[in-house]
Design a protein around this nucleic acid. Structure first.
Lengths: 211, 211
DNA sequence: ACTCAATGATGAGTACACTCAGTAATGTTG
DNA sequence: CAACATTACTGAGTGTACTCATCATTGAGT
């Protein structure tokens, strides 16, 4: 047994194991049936814990979804960062950054939309929610970095524009009109909007490069 | 009795009266206690109808909130249009357009956020939801009009940028970080973002005016 | 090793949005 | 007006997220 694991004591170890089982159970059930067709009872049963216990680990069913999806979102962001680094133009880079996030969110449309709903409207004091907001913040930072790099925006402006792009991303994914759309269609809608808000900037960029 | 009212027949008149009572009851109760602290039972009771009947008129509690709030939103948009017409610069005009909407949304913060949630994530096939989306569409059109007028954007671009501004508006109002903010603080946040995405365009506008 | 506070787990219970099988009201037809 | 078809209304019932009083486990202090 690893030193660190032993150090924790039975109590802490048991708690971690339970959280593991809850995560695994929720992850599997949500993926197979969709959030709305899974009851918290089922998850508790699958995790082999009491129904009340579940709510010691996640205050609401929504938090449970955040717990499961945050991991995937973070991984998608990682892939996006790598893809964006391979692009040499601002819009293309931003789109490359966001595409894996969209793809990840659309694996199961209902779960993806519910995830967004929880993220925006859930209780920000809850830990998994805070985690989600952190990842959104990282996405914005990554976007801001690309804007600074490719268009030479200063930090303040890059941050503001990145927030706008974040809003575009979230609302385009959440929008009811896109429930039946493919990943590529959604990415296209995002691209159009990003291009539009950067239009003036790109000219500036080109101009400043010429000078 | 008015000709039109008599023409409808007892049945239709009774239905309209009921919808009136439901609207009035929901409006009063939501305003006083907030959506989350009012039960559908209470509303049914106040409207003097059976609990099941309520759901013949609004499929969900969320639809009931949309029913109540759409009216206020539409009125706010009207006020915004008037205010925007008095402005002579793009950012100021857009902000003037949106300010009453923000103010209207913040009268009761919880109700406002829940309204936004229903709007974005509710069932778009429901009539009150569709109504809400129409008003959002009108807001976007009004915004697009201002962009065309003050910056000379063509229709396609104006529409796209207007949609982005709509996303800014919705997410800034919905954001958990603004739950405690005043209307002016939220408007300021929106102004900053709008200014940032129009920055390049405003320069273009000035340039084209000079030519 | 024993005691005992402190922390964790439990599942029957609660609250509430929403349903549906049964009933009443309305308009229509002969 | 009677008989009927259609539409609207009803509230007891249902499913489910979440709570809370009670019990179990742990580990620190002696």
């Amino acid at each position: 047994m690893a030193e660190a694991t032993r150090r924790l004591g039975r109590r802490e170890r048991s708690k971690r194991a339970k959280l593991e089982r809850i995560t695994a159970a929720a992850s599997a059930l949500f993926a197979e049936h969709g959030v709305d067709d899974v009851t918290t009872q089922q998850i508790a049963e699958a995790a082999d814990i009491g129904t009340g216990t579940l709510f010691l680990y996640a205050k609401t069913k929504g938090e449970l979804l955040l717990l499961v999806q945050n991991v995937h979102y973070a991984a998608a962001l990682q892939r996006g960062r790598a893809a964006a680094a391979r692009e040499s133009e601002a819009v293309a880079a931003v789109v490359a950054l966001l595409t894996p996030v969209v793809a990840c969110n659309r694996v199961q449309v209902d779960n993806g939309r519910t995830y967004l709903r929880e993220m925006v409207f859930g209780d920000p004091t809850e830990p998994r929610h805070a985690e989600a907001l952190t990842i959104v913040g990282e996405t914005e930072q990554a976007t801001a970095g690309l804007l600074a790099q490719h268009l030479g925006l200063d930090e303040a402006e890059a941050t503001t524009v990145a927030r706008v792009i974040s809003a575009i991303l979230l609302l385009t994914m959440a929008s009811g009109e896109h429930v039946g759309s493919s990943v590529e269609e959604i990415v296209q809608a995002i691209r159009t909007q990003v291009r539009a808000i950067l239009a003036g900037r790109i000219l500036d960029g080109v101009d400043s490069a010429r000078r």
